[in-house]
Computed example of a mutant assay.
Amino acid sequence: MTQKTWFITGASRGIGAEIAKAVLTAGNQLIATARNKTDLDQFESNPNVLTLNLDVTDEAQVQAAVAAALERFGQIDVLVNNAGFGVLGGIEETSAQEVEWVYRTNVFGLLNVTRVVLPSMRQRRSGYIINLSSIGGYRSYPGWGIYCSTKFAVEGITEALHDELAPLGIHATVVEPGYFRTNFLDSSSLQRTAMQIPDYAETVGKTRKIASERNYQQQGDPTKLAQALLEIVNADTPPLRLPLGTDTLEAIAQKNAYVEQETAKWRTLSESTNYR
């Protein structure tokens, strides 16, 4: 494996921090970013690390961070768009402002960073973009609808990027973790809607209860997730989509079976809409 330079957003905690640690252990160079640079102190003493303040929703700050990374290391080989947070609540319960907040980071922020990193990758005809999605990027659930919709967007963006960039020697992968044992279900990463409507107690309410019970009991190991990313980056034919965790694999199988069954049931009506 050759040494690579990784640029990771949201590297101060959770999955982002685990990826950053794995990258350094493997002998790579790292640009670790977070909204508050002081949260990256664990990486400061390593000469192979550049830590930067980065709010991905601030386009000027994104441009400055990428410029600093290129000045220090000369190139960015792997971009990991990891920065993001969740919102838990029913569709009707989620205010326009709460929707805007999560989209600004999870979708628009990812696009901000990707647009600024890509020119140098195109120039070298080499690079790798890893976009962190979720089990909720493939299948939505009660209470997670708005969050899942941001990850559905990440999936669509990555599928298009994969085809647009392949002829230029750049690969794109969307990673779909299930429930991993990080702080994602804490208030530091998960926003709960201010409004809670009693009529949704049996759907969204149950999801809120499950989220509280599952916090720090998740079955996924984030250190193994990080190792999986190192493996695909060095693979000859890396995947477009990488589900991680048995819960994600099960959710994908269930949705695929449901879609196949429903498509078969309504096939005659679907086919009837063509011009004859």
Rank of each mutant, 00 (worst) to 15 (best):
S134F: 12
Y138P: 00
L88W: 06
I157T: 06
G84V: 07
R104N: 13
A68T: 13
V174M: 10
N82T: 05
S95W: 00
E93G: 11
I130P: 04
P167G: 10
P119I: 11
V87E: 00
T158K: 10
A160S: 15
T94V: 09
A153F: 06
Y141K: 10
R115A: 14
E176T: 10
E71N: 15
V154N: 05
D58L: 00
N53G: 13
E93Y: 11
Y147C: 06
L70G: 05
V174P: 01
L132K: 07
V66R: 05
V62E: 13
V62H: 08
M121Q: 06
R115H: 15
R122A: 08
A153M: 02
E92G: 05
V174D: 01
V56D: 08
V116Y: 12
L50C: 08
G156Y: 02
G145W: 06
E98V: 05
V56I: 10
V49E: 01
A60Y: 11
G145H: 04
A65W: 04
L110R: 02
E98H: 07
V78R: 09
A60F: 13
S126A: 15
R124S: 14
V154I: 15
T173N: 04
I170D: 02
T57C: 10
D55Y: 00
I91Q: 02
G89P: 06
Y138F: 15
L165Y: 10
D58I: 05
T105M: 00
T114I: 13
L52Y: 10
T173D: 01
E176Q: 13
E155F: 08
G86W: 04
T158G: 03
D163A: 05
D163F: 15
Y141T: 00
S120Q: 13
V80W: 00
A83L: 01
G86V: 04
R122T: 02
L52V: 11
G169K: 09
L79K: 03
F73Y: 12
F152H: 06
R72E: 14
L70V: 12
G90S: 13
T51F: 12
G89D: 03
G127H: 09
R122P: 05
L54V: 09
V174K: 03
E71Q: 14
S134N: 05
T51Q: 13
A153P: 03
A67K: 13
G86R: 02
L132V: 07
L70D: 01
D55P: 14
P119S: 12
S120T: 07
S95L: 02
V102S: 02
R125N: 12
L168Q: 11
V87W: 03
V117T: 02
V99D: 04
V62N: 04
W144K: 09
G127W: 10
L88C: 09
T94M: 11
T94D: 00
I157M: 14
A83Y: 07
F73Q: 01
L54G: 02
Q97H: 11
V107M: 02
